[in-house]
Each structure stands twice: as C-alpha cells, then as structure tokens.
Design a protein around this nucleic acid. Structure first.
Lengths: 290, 290
DNA sequence: TGATTTACCTGACTTTAGTCAGATAAAATG
DNA sequence: CATTTTATCTGACTAAAGTCAGGTAAATCA
C-alpha cells in the first residue's frame, strides 16, 4: 500500500509528534528547553563542560550562560577541574538532583503510558531496539571487558539462549568447552563488548591457548543490531588485538544451524580446516593466518 | 540489561537526534523552520489555514506572518474560501510545488540512506510500522469503502496471505465462500477500513444475506496494529452500521488456527452455535443478537 | 437588523536561541 | 620564561519563535 519510503516517513511523523510532546512536557517546569537539556545532561553523569557542549552541540557562549542560569537557580555547582584549572566540572546540588528526577519522572511516565497500554510491550520494545540500534550505528563503542562482568554476562546469556533455540537438541554451556575468563583476558586474549547507547549489542572473545593458535569464541550480535556490519567490526577489533598480543594463527568453530555465521567466515577470508577439538557442538572449523 | 523504560528512552534519544537532523536539513534552503513547516503542510494538501494552524499548533498571529512570508516568496497563493469569505485557503504556486518537492527529496534521501544501508530493511520497516501504529492509535480513521477499492484489496490480500500462512494446508479464496462486493455495501452491508496516517491497518466486512442474519467477514488487523484494541473498535463500528441497516442477528465463522480470534469472540459476548454453512475452512461458528 | 461570533490580521512586545569577536587565565610548548 | 594553545567567559549583537491586545470584515444569531 505505502512504499518503503512512505512507511519510513509515516514513522518519522508519528515519532516527531511524540518527541515534540516530550519536549514541550519539559517546558512545564518554567525553564527553557536549553537549560533543561543541560540539566539532564549533567544528571546523566556528564560532568565535563566540554563533553556536555559536544553532546548537545552548543556554542561555548551559550553554554556558559545556560550553566550560569542553572547555577543561579542553585541546581548545579561548578568547580574547577583539579587536574586542569581551565576546565570546569558541573555537578548537581541536592536541589538539582530533585529537579532532575522530576524530568526523569516525566520521561518515564511517557514510556510507561505507551508501553502499558500495548498488549505486546515486548514486541514494541524489540522494534524500538531495532530502530535505535540502526540509528545509533555510528556511535558504537567497543569496550574491552572482563568476560565475567555484567555486560559480558548479559551478552553471553543472550548468545547461549539463541544457540539453545537454534541447535537441534538445544545447547548447554556445561557440555561445551567453556573457556575460563583468564584465557579471554590480557595477556592471553581479550573480550570485547559493543555498546550502543547503553545497550550491549554484540560481543566476541579471543581465547589464547598454548597450542600455537588462538580461538575466536562467543561471537554474538544482538538481533536488534544485525545487518549493520557489526560482526565484521568486532572481528577486525579482535584481529587487531591478536596482532598486539603477538598471535599469528586464529581458529574458530561453528555449527550448521548457524548458516549465516558459516557464510560470514567464508566471505571474510577464513579457510575451512579439519576438526581440531572434541567439542560436541561444532560442525565447521576455520582458520585464518594473520 | 536495560529495563523496559530505559529501552524506550534509548529509542527516544536515537530518534530525537534523527528527527533533529532532519529538521536542520530543512534549514539548508534559507528559510526558517517555521516557514518550511507551513510550506510542507500546504504541500501535503492541507489548504485550510485553520487546519494548518491546528496541525502545527501555531498562534494565529505567527501563522499569518509565516503565510505572508511564503506569499512574498511567491511560493503560495492565498484566496478567500468561496463558501465563507472569512476563511482563507492556501495553495502552492508552481514555484511552491518545486520548492516543496525539494523538501520531499531531502526527506526521501534520509529514508533511503537509512533503509539502504541496512541488510534487512523489511524488518526495519515492520518495526517502524509497529511503533508508528502504536503512537498513532488515537488518530485512527474508520472509512466505509467499496470492498473492491485499492485500500480494501490491500487489506484483503494481507488477510488471505496470513490465513494461508496459518491454516494447515493453506488458504485459497476461491475455495472459500467469497462474498460479492455488493453484499458488503449499503444497503445490504458495509465494509470498513481503518487508516492510520495513510496506512490501512485493519478492515471488516458486514455481509447482508436474505436468510434473516448478516455475517461478519474478513475481520483483519495488521500485525503492526495488534494489541491496541482495534478489532473491538472495528466490531463496534460494524454493529452500529448493522443496527442502522436494520439487522437483528449477526453470525460469523472462524478457524481453529486463529485461537486469538476465537478467544476474542467469546470475550466480546458472542455465542457459539452449530455450523450454519458448508465453507470448508471454518471450525467455529458464532452468533450475536443485537 | 443590530448584536455577537468567527477567522484572520496587525502592531508592539518578550523570550529563547544562536553567533561572533574579543578577554582572561591556566596549561603546554619551545 | 616568553609564546602559544586551550577552555571558558563576556558583551554586543541578530534571528526566530512566540505572546497578546486590539482591529477588521464576514457570517451567524436573536
């Protein structure tokens, strides 16, 4: 009925009025939108004036005045950065915290109102994750983390759950050769998590071994972030780290229930090799010389 | 990882920056945003000054000035409404059409850019339809149309395709008792389509018969609009129309592969009755006395 | 038909946002 | 230590958005 572009633009219109409504709801507190945005940026934990300026794309003069107006309202306190007295750091006063939480409440109420009246809020949220991930694709951050950290565990659990859904007969980590955390941390290996505005959307582990090669493990991309080239970026990061560590040979294994993964490795220049372990799950084995 | 509200707000942030970027792209034409918005409202076919004012939530004074600035640019022409000379109607001049289409092009390019770089644009569009439908739920319009019209045919094709996916052994309209168009139009019956900002999201037919009852046929709600109470509204519209026509008894049939439909009819006060036709598809038969 | 309402216009105003050229002081550089 | 760079501030602006109290002419009402 509507073509693709019309559908996109219908979405834009719907969302513009929703976002506009959020903006105007921020005006109910007797403060211009600019000041409210700065207050919220500080409330979110941004303390560096320069960082806030970059985040909100504000002119330095305008920023200076907005900060002063919040200071005069006694909502924030500005102090010189102890390391560099040219820089200024902004923190909320208790009154500022209270005011910030009112804005938080306004945002949360809008969210609850929309989600609460929908019979399938999870489907709605998945759709939102998909769109947010697509829009945010140029702001991914790749973080090297402990594979036991909260973000890493979140990714791994999502990964295991997907394998369990897709493998014939399911998947149990305990039956698989689960690498211990140290083998996926420096100096042996690494573990990367990709964050997209607070949501982990992908991960990959590089597991060092004493057999003359390292293994790629737990390459996972969230359903919301598929089709955006994230797997390739994660692999590039990992290969870069492998070179730093001094690794020359990379190996990995995968399962026939994951045809897009098998395809991906072939396309990315991996060579199929013979089985090199006795893990019960994999059907395919690949190698890449760095 | 993120809770529901945080996910919603991540979506809002992503979309705010996208919408902001669209807004600023509108500034490349040397015209303030307010004037650009009015020009676009007129280009979309809104001619009534009052309607544009309501749509854009503008003060009458501001509106008046914006219209004049567009008039001075010779992009629009203002004429008195022939039926009520107090009212003014705005239409684009040829130059205005050209300028409007530049804005259209800017919007379309943004849409193409995002969709074109995604490996699964259809999934993205489905997500957008879902969200747009949820946000637009308070602006549904219910239109009584010819079941052979383009919008009706679109709904029916979507409906048949879904039955074909869900019925064991598929679904073929030709095997079913396909009602002829006249039986679903006044004075015998009606056919309603629900529009959500240009996209048909649901339909229902009321088929008059000469057997002392009328039948509810082709009740369909788009996947994007499920969970928003649309089926109930469509049924209410249909019952209202049935009363107008003078129908006292409503009947319908449905299939065991559509358990949510069976549930819905039970919940909405329909009584299960014996088979009343020899259509090969239905398993359940219901009746409602008006 | 006179009074009232409606739809839009005009003028005078304020607020907000944004720009830009210096000024200032701390830090980094040679 | 003088010079340059960096981070922020200040003052003097402009443009855009928005507000509000009348004003005008057409339509509607009593």
């Amino acid at each position: 009925m509507l073509n693709d572009i019309s559908r996109f633009r219908r979405f834009s219109r719907a969302v513009t009025s929703e976002v506009g409504a959020l903006d105007t709801s921020f005006l109910g507190r007797g403060r211009p939108l600019g000041a409210a945005r700065v207050l919220n940026a500080i409330g979110q934990g941004r303390t560096d004036v320069a960082a806030i300026r970059a985040y909100l794309a504000l002119d330095s003069g305008l920023m200076s005045r907005l900060l002063r107006s919040l200071e005069e309202e006694k909502l924030i306190e500005l102090t010189a950065d102890p390391e560099d007295a040219r820089k200024r750091r902004a923190v909320l006063t208790p009154a500022g915290e209270a005011e910030f939480s009112v804005y938080e409440q306004l945002s949360n109420e809008r969210a609850e109102k929309l989600l609460g009246t929908h019979a399938h809020p999870q489907a709605l949220l998945e759709a939102m994750d998909l769109i947010a991930s697509a829009l945010d694709r140029n702001r991914w951050s790749f973080e090297e983390v402990d594979p036991r950290s909260q973000t890493a565990r979140y990714c791994l659990e999502e990964y295991y759950a997907e394998l369990d859904r897709r493998f014939e007969g399911g998947f149990q980590v305990s039956l698989s050769a689960d690498p211990d955390a140290e083998s996926m941390m420096r100096p042996k290996g690494v573990f990367f998590v990709t964050m997209s505005d607070g949501l982990p959307v992908g991960c990959v582990g590089l597991k060092g071994t004493d057999k003359g090669y390292a293994e790629i493990k737990r390459l996972w991309v969230s359903p919301a972030a598929r089709g955006l080239g994230l797997a390739r970026k994660l692999m590039a990061k990992t290969e870069e780290a492998a070179r730093e560590i001094g690794i020359k040979v990379l190996r990995l294994d995968t399962n026939k229930a994951l045809p897009e993964a098998v395809n991906f490795y072939r396309k990315e220049g991996w060579t199929e090799i013979d089985r090199f372990n006795d893990d019960p799950y994999p059907d395919f084995f690949f190698e890449k010389i760095l």
